[in-house]
């Protein structure tokens, strides 16, 4: 099979970009979308043209590095999978496929289809962790976790931080990602001590990064390769609401070992 690609090409952040059209060489339907791009790039390289820059790493749907908006949908036509798990057999011979980068103010473009998603890292640094004592690892079963909580936390922990939720949202909102991270830790007993502080810190960082707000359109859930549920956004809204009412914790002078 062969396809026609309409790909966003942009030299760097400061130059202006445009779509370029490429005819693919003969493809195998069992190639992944990224392998197809590899093949197209090989062809470009032999012609002495600049290959198309795109993000990828694990190529098995677990790292969250691949991106791409394919014909208007982040991660391509299927539900619950990433671009790297999208295969050319999902397209027809002769199809024209439009490939764009993830677009958001908080995901500035680096080159072609590659954007900078470090804003997600900064949100994680703001509170997406639990504070533990150093020393030997505690026994795995010393803290009982109710099964329903463990299951729900596991569902939230599935988030691979790819940013497709932001890319799909008409408001470029990161609520689904942030909600998944807040819920994942907030559901576990180990996450309780910092639960509200975490919600506040992560949401505030999200706002600071310039993501939009939620209008409950559900695009994020529809494109999420891990099918993270909008229910988690409600959970985040609950926790953040509590944090908002409580206000910043008062600092105690001269307390602790200090």
């Amino acid at each position: 099979m062969k396809v026609t690609l309409k790909v966003w090409r942009q030299k760097n952040r400061n130059s202006s970009g445009s779509f370029k059209t490429y005819e693919s060489p003969e493809l195998n339907g069992n190639m992944s979308f990224l392998e197809m791009l590899d093949v197209v790039n090989e062809q470009l390289a032999t012609r002495g043209e600049e290959p198309i820059a795109f993000d990828h790493d694990c190529r098995e749907g677990i790292c969250g590095t691949c991106s791409l908006v394919i014909d208007g949908k982040p991660h391509g036509p299927h539900k619950g999978i990433a671009t790297c798990q999208t295969y050319m057999r999902s397209f027809k011979d002769g199809d024209e496929i439009v490939v764009e980068p993830f677009r958001a103010k908080a995901f500035p473009l680096i080159k072609d289809l590659v954007c900078d998603r470090k804003s997600f890292d900064r949100i994680q640094h703001a509170g997406g962790f639990i504070t533990v004592r150093t020393g030997a690892a505690p026994d795995a079963n010393s803290i009982p976790v109710p099964k329903p909580d463990a299951d729900l936390a596991m569902d939230a922990a599935q988030c691979i931080g790819c940013g497709a939720c932001v890319a799909a949202c008409k408001n470029a909102s990161a609520m689904l990602f942030v909600a998944a991270k807040i819920s994942h830790l907030g559901l576990m007993p180990q996450g309780q001590p910092e639960r509200y502080k975490r919600a506040k810190a992560m949401v505030d960082q999200m706002d600071e990064e310039g993501f939009g707000a939620c209008t409950v359109t559900g695009s994020c859930e529809a494109v999420c390769p891990k099918e993270i549920s909008l229910d988690f956004i409600a959970r985040m809204n609950r926790d953040y609401g509590v944090a908002l009412l409580r206000g910043d914790p008062k600092t105690i002078k001269g307390g602790g070992a200090g």
Binding site: K170, G212, T217, G218
Partner: peptide, 29 residues
């Protein structure tokens, strides 16, 4: 103010119709 925030969050629009899976009502609030 939220609409301004949302518009600013995507300075460059997509060339393809976006808002995958979103109802018309939710897009036109």
């Amino acid at each position: 103010t939220l609409a301004q925030l949302n518009a600013a969050a995507r300075p460059q629009p997509y060339a393809t119709p976006g808002a995958y899976g979103a109802s018309k009502a939710s897009q036109y609030m």
